[in-house]
Design a protein around this nucleic acid. Structure first.
Lengths: 156, 156
DNA sequence: CCTGAAACCCCGTGATG
DNA sequence: CATCACGGGGTTTCAGG
């Protein structure tokens, strides 16, 4: 994981390039070039520089999981036994495909995860069968997301 | 927001197309075509079908906020006064660029958000100046993500 | 840090089986 | 649901200022 690089300085053209591609990763480079008034080759050079800096970490197609029947998203705070090492717990959580995010956090919990399930029953199975069966996990607290109202990236 | 469409059925080729594009949205269609052994035109047709179904919701360049100095991510549970309508609170939260996600959740909190800040001081300012100053927000509970260990999309 | 040109490759569609 | 063919355009790299 790359760390902060405070030498990173984006000018207006870099920002326009990034904003276009963050909105639609398949925007043609030449279209961006026409938009900002420089050549396609120059955009390429800038993109290479941005990649080398680590700012760009790739591009992804976004899919809407609801269409596949995944309608239940939940956050789960996990308490670990003192004996259980956090990295070992994470290793086990990685094996559960429904776990999409996993954080070490300050506060009550040792670990905080986001899961995506088809429905409440599926969520219950993931909790009872997959998560609770990891030895070292003593207790969990679940928050179901009834509705996600904001979902965006940082502003450039 | 699209809802579940249980008529959606993906065959192996659809899955290969989606997996390639979910990993790298700029993968050339013809490269995928060669990979799965059908023509580019056929991939195009399938992508149109997938778009029409709502499964594909676009493509995004992912950037690594750490490189811009955004090193503090936190989740915040928000308690709202009974008088405050949730939609109004969300509207106000949308004005805060550091707020990247916002959910209605079951459990203790009315609203649950994810924020991304440059450092702890910046987080404190967002909490005290931007969030707490929204009338109707009575109390918050903050969990700082010390480290994100898993970050992925659903498996296709 | 930029440009223009060249070579190569891809896109998206329409006709068709 | 697939294919081929095609015109238009995009990508990428190079030498050069």
């Amino acid at each position: 994981m790359k760390n902060a690089n405070n030498n990173m300085q984006l000018d207006g053209i870099d920002k326009k390039i990034l904003r276009a591609l963050m909105k639609d990763a398949r925007t043609p480079i030449l279209e961006i070039a026409r938009g900002v008034g420089i050549s396609g080759a120059a955009i390429h050079q800038r993109l290479r520089k941005l990649e080398k800096s680590g700012l760009i970490s790739g591009s992804k197609f976004m899919i809407n999981p609801k269409v596949l029947g995944y309608t239940t998203m939940a956050y789960i705070g996990i308490y670990l036994d003192k004996a259980m090492s956090n990295p070992e717990a994470v290793k086990q959580l990685k094996q559960i495909p429904e776990v999409l995010e996993c954080h070490y956090t300050t506060g009550n919990w040792s670990i905080f995860i986001k899961v995506l399930c088809k429905d409440n029953e599926h969520l219950m199975q993931v909790l009872n069968k997959d998560i609770q069966s990891i030895s070292g996990i003593s207790r969990t607290e679940t928050f179901i997301s009834l509705n996600q109202q904001i979902d965006r990236q940082i502003e450039i």
